[in-house]
Design a protein around this nucleic acid. Structure first.
Lengths: 131, 131
DNA sequence: CAAAAAGCTAACGTTCACGTAAAGTAAAGG
DNA sequence: CCTTTACTTTACGTGAACGTTAGCTTTTTG
C-alpha cells in the first residue's frame, strides 16, 4: 500500500515551505489527490519532489526541471516525437557534461587554495576528509 | 603586452549583452579601466568574466560567484580570517561534490532513457558520441 | 561632412521563484 | 465547547538578474 503524505510532511522532509510545494503544483510539477479540500500526496509526488530538489541543486529553472521530469515520464510510443525526445535527452546530457567539467575545474582550483590555507595554518586542523 | 577589449568585444566572445557586462561591474565583479568615458577591459577582467560564466553554468548566484572569485583573489595574510576563509572553501567543495553526485545520477538516468529511445528507433541513428 | 555605429548614464520594466499577509474552513486536543 | 493547529484560496510584495527605452556624446565610415 502506498505511503501518503500531507503537505507539511513533505515540507518537513524536503526542508521547503508549504507555499513552495503549492507553487510547484501550480506549475504542474505535482498533482496530489484531494480529500475534501486537503492535498494528499502519494509516492509519485514524493519521487517528483526529489527530482525537483535535485534539479534545483543543479541550478535548473522550474521549466527545465519540468522538461527533465517529462523525460522520465513520457511513454514514448509515437515515433515521430521520439526523435525530438532523443534530441532533448542529448541536449540535457551535453549541458550536464559541461557542468561536470566546470565542477572538476572549480574543485581542483579550490583544492589548490585549500592546500595553501592548510599550509599557512599548520597541520593542526583536521581536514574533515576521509582518506 | 596585455590584450585589451572593448565592451562589445567581451559581449561577443561570451555571448552576453553589454548591459549584462555593465551589470557585473555594478556588482563589483569587473573593474575596467577608463579611456575618457569608455570602458577598457584587460586580461584580468577577461579571466573574471570566464569565471562568472562558469559560475552561472553551475547555477550560482552573482553573490556566490562573487564569493568564489574572492576565494581566488584574497591574498590571505591575516591568519584570523584564514580560518573562515578555509571554512568557505570547504563549504563550496561540499556543495560541488553534491552537484557531482546529482549530475552522475541524472546522467545515468538519461543514459537509460537514451538507450530505450535508440532501441525503439533502430540503430540507424548516430549517437554523436566518440567512443 | 553627414550619418550611422558604438558607447555612456539614468531609470523604469519584466520574469522567476517564491514570501507574506488576510480571511476563511476543518479537525483535534484540553 | 472553545481554541489551537493544520490547511485552504486569493492576492499583493520582493530580490535577483537582467531587458528596454530615452537622451546624450563620441567615433568611425561611406
Amino acid at each position: 500500500m502506498e505511503p501518503l503524505y500531507s503537505i507539511t510532511d513533505l515540507a518537513r522532509e524536503f526542508k521547503v515551505t508549504t507555499r513552495t510545494i503549492r507553487y510547484y503544483e501550480d506549475k504542474n510539477l505535482l498533482s496530489p489527490k484531494r480529500e475534501g479540500q486537503r492535498r494528499i500526496y502519494g509516492s509519485r509526488d514524493h519521487v517528483r519532489l526529489r527530482l525537483i530538489m535535485r534539479g534545483k541543486r543543479l541550478g535548473f529553472s522550474i521549466e527545465e526541471i519540468q522538461g527533465l521530469i517529462n523525460l522520465y515520464d513520457v511513454d514514448a510510443t509515437e515515433s515521430s516525437q521520439l526523435y525530438k525526445f532523443l534530441e532533448m535527452i542529448r541536449q540535457r546530457q551535453q549541458a550536464l557534461r559541461q557542468q561536470q567539467i566546470d565542477i572538476s575545474e572549480t574543485l581542483s582550483e579550490l583544492d589548490k587554495r585549500e592546500g595553501e590555507c592548510v599550509a599557512l595554518l599548520g597541520n593542526t586542523i583536521d581536514t574533515g576528509r576521509r582518506k
